[in-house]
Amino acid sequence: MQTSVLFALYINTIQKEIRSKTLIFVLMINLGLIFVVNSGIDLIIKSVESQNMINLHGQKASIFYFLISIWCTFLSIIFGIDCIKSDLESGVASVIMAQPLRRWWYVLMRILGATTIVFGHYLLSLFVAWIIFYISDGTNQLNMQIFGALFATLLVNLAVITLSALIAMSLNKMVAFILSLIVCSIVGIANQAMGTEDFLYNIQHIGLAKILGLVAHYLLPRIGIWSSFAGSLINGKMPAMNYGLELLHYGLTLAALFWLLSFIFSRREL
């Protein structure tokens, strides 16, 4: 395997997104969203505090983090669907795959490139938010704990992008987007419902919905668990979970997803 070839593919993935109008459009929405979220949160905080209900002022960063995480999941789905599918639709994939490359190299670099783009958005959002918060109320709302959640967010982005790219292989973009949203939601719900229980408890009272939940929880990367983990870190808590086992599960399920995606792509006629 030539690292220079892999690097060229990786850079190409980023360049094709950076030079496309989609990224500029998404970036503008992203910045607009940050301003709207900032104003919205301020309005809610003032409204709640004026009624002497609870003090939400210290929660601003947490609320913001929650919203920006959801936005980044949307972005992961969009870029995950687009990273391979757009090349297949335009015919670029056949031109690239006519070169002396292994198909899994291409798939790997498209996934990593898309992850870099989404993660870059995430970092940029945090930075812009920090500036806005600082200017609007003079406080440093973004603390080091947010940066501690970066690793978990990266894991979530990578898993969602791989899953979306896989779903998009045999569906059109709109259907793939809707299905990816549904699958990510099911995984998130299943992780919340089953994450704190042991396997024997989870397999009791089996029904159709339970089977779906079990598949989502045990056979797919636990994006819900890692999202919660990142959220807890923001709130200054370390959730009780077996980190080694969760990381092992994440690694194995992500590898399985990637293998399946590469296998389907390698069988595809271009």
């Binding site: 030539q2 220079s4 070839v5 690097f7 060229a8 593919l9 190409n12 360049q15 094709k16 030079r19 496309s20 335009s90 015919g91 670029v92 056949s94 031109v95 690239i96 070169q99 002396p100 490359l101």
Partner: peptide
């Protein structure tokens, strides 16, 4: 060379050729 050669339209001629050079090591 496919019947209709297509590559990313925002790439320059030079960048396109350089990219294929990189892919060929």
């Amino acid at each position: 060379l496919p019947e209709r050669f297509y590559f990313y339209p925002y790439y320059t001629v030079r960048d396109s050729v350089a990219f294929f050079m990189a892919l060929n090591g």
